[in-house]
Design a protein around this nucleic acid. Structure first.
Lengths: 327, 327
DNA sequence: TTATAGGTTGGTAGCGATACCAAACGAAAC
DNA sequence: GTTTCGTTTGGTATCGCTACCAACCTATAA
């Protein structure tokens, strides 16, 4: 920057200003600076800028698994909002482990991110301490926390699962199996299980533990879970899968066995991905506004950074049941 | 850090060393520092560290679309290798536009990333200039570039498409349609198209332009493309889709119309995602080592940062044909 | 003409770490 | 006891930028 200033015949201060708030600098100066910047292809060092101003323009995002296409829409939305505001995104993987989350939070705070989005609402003690002490705006998402650290943007896993279970009963299904993703260290899965049982109780249906199966999230696991459920309960008339891959895996299994869906068994899924809409038959599911969650999260962060008061915000973006051919 | 030093009764220099290279500090000092660090929950400011040492531990990754699950495996692999080496990942979206890529590169260089991975091998003039001048290690991927900026890790889109087309012919298919993703600003798509025609020429089959259809990457677009191809060429006996979503969209369309696959028409896809393996029938496809590409890219960057000589490396990780039920 | 204000420009002092060299220390050799 | 060498510790300058305030314009009003 010193060089640019020299070559433009102005002070470094003027260069800095011309780049950050062009309006505060006379047209003549701005032209000189711009010319020199272009000539030398100068790129301001944001590291130095951040250190000096103790402001940064990087937001950290921690997701349980980058690989999971579920988060892709949310990540994209966050990324877009940030970019529109001249900010950047760093991503880390917590792999469903609270320790890894803690490490990622520490690393991000060390990088002095200006905001954090955590796809998780239960944290280790040290994670909460670090976050609270840092004063960095935090968004929690993935579930609606009882005691948010700062801000939360999500939907209720409990209500969503409950609603779909009631929906299946309304369609006449009496024996509804539920296949959940692993429950360990995962409050979302736990909430969903609770929602399922709450619905059964309301319906006066027997809340049989053997109707719930835990499965890792692959196609074969979905197929396998379906088969095990049907073997244990030959009168099963609906399967509700807490993940689109599980559901489609089960659907494929039905195709292989020649079982009519929904004639022999109905299949319902979680999350509205394109695949479910185009599958044959198309699959009934819960639409979770993933992108909207990402968008709102980023917007709340941006607002806070632009001076909005630091108040605990809790946004429930809801969900929707999408009835299709499979139920 | 000054505070920590005071409370530990040592100099700031010793704190800095105790944190970065514990071996260079006596046990006594290290213990004092560690105690103070723990007591105050001190997190070193990496921004200041980077500025001072003019080293950073952040790698930038630019992909055409975060949303596309294709890149997810690669991103995950990059992320894991970096984390294992104490580094971090920033992600940006180029949305298939060279201007957006240029903006992202400028932003990342401004952030003084220590390495860059670009999922693209054609760039704007200014992008190349910036990268070359910056001296930052760069990996290009997604295709094998003729004139790499620095390092390249990929496979050959041309060879892969050619090989699958030859494979379909070997299975007895004579009239093979090809559905490509949009060609604009996308050298990968262009290479694939070339590979397809090269195979037809080798086979002595007529290279009919109307056998190639351009389609955006959705399920309906795949279904639609299949229908249009069959209408134009009633004797079409195979469809090769340059994207798994397109292929499965076409497969679903066959199911809806009751067309036997591969009896009435064979379907081949690009990229080996789980969906293709579990679909009914399972789909023949090209296995592209996406994860391996991510892993190698990150490893090459890490090696370079650890002092490996700055030589132009070009790694071809190849591909594999996965023959399944659909052909 | 001088005072006053508003708008620009420049100088100086950090931001919080690390690089580099000098000082202090301790152990081994004489 | 002194010298010497190697290791550990500390001081100072600096990384490249921005915050803050002082100095300087130019124009308008008194």
């Amino acid at each position: 920057m010193r060089d640019i200033a020299r070559h433009a015949g102005v002070s470094p201060m003027t260069v800095s200003r011309a780049l950050r708030e062009p309006a505060a600098v006379s047209e003549k100066m701005r032209a000189k600076v711009d010319a020199a910047v272009r000539e030398f292809g100068y790129l301001p060092n944001r590291i130095a800028g951040s250190l000096s101003s103790s402001r940064s323009n990087v937001v950290g995002l921690i997701v349980p698994g980058i690989r999971n296409s579920l988060y892709a829409g949310m990540i994209q939305a966050v990324s877009e909002v940030l970019r529109a505001n001249g900010m950047h995104l760093m991503i880390a993987n917590s792999g469903h482990s609270l320790e890894d989350e803690e490490a990622a939070v520490a690393a991000f705070l060390g990088q002095r991110v200006c905001g954090l989005v955590l796809h998780n609402t239960t944290h280790s003690k040290r994670t909460r301490e670090m976050l609270e002490r840092s004063g960095v705006p935090v968004i929690e998402t993935g579930n609606l926390p009882d005691d948010p650290i700062d801000m939360a943007v999500s939907y209720s896993n409990f209500e969503a699962t409950r609603a779909m279970t009631l929906h299946l009963a309304r369609l006449g299904h009496r024996k509804i199996g539920f296949v959940t993703l692993p429950l360990r260290d995962n409050d979302r899965s736990e909430e969903r299980r609770r929602g399922y049982f709450a619905a059964l109780r309301e319906l006066g249906l027997p809340a049989d533990d053997s109707l719930v199966l835990e499965a890792a999230g692959g196609f074969s696991e979905g197929a396998d879970a379906l088969v095990r459920l049907v073997n244990a309960h030959p009168d099963l008339d609906a399967g509700f899968f807490a993940g689109e891959v599980l559901a489609v895996g089960a659907l494929f299994e039905c195709q292989r066995r020649g079982w009519d869906v929904p004639g022999r068994i109905a299949i319902a899924s979680y999350d509205d991905v394109d695949l479910l809409k185009h599958a044959v038959p198309s699959v009934t599911t819960l639409r979770i506004p993933r992108q909207e969650i990402g968008r709102r999260s980023a917007e709340l962060l941006v607002q806070r950074l632009q001076g909005a008061p630091a108040e605990r915000v809790k946004v429930d973006l809801g969900f929707e049941i999408v009835q299709r051919e499979s139920t």
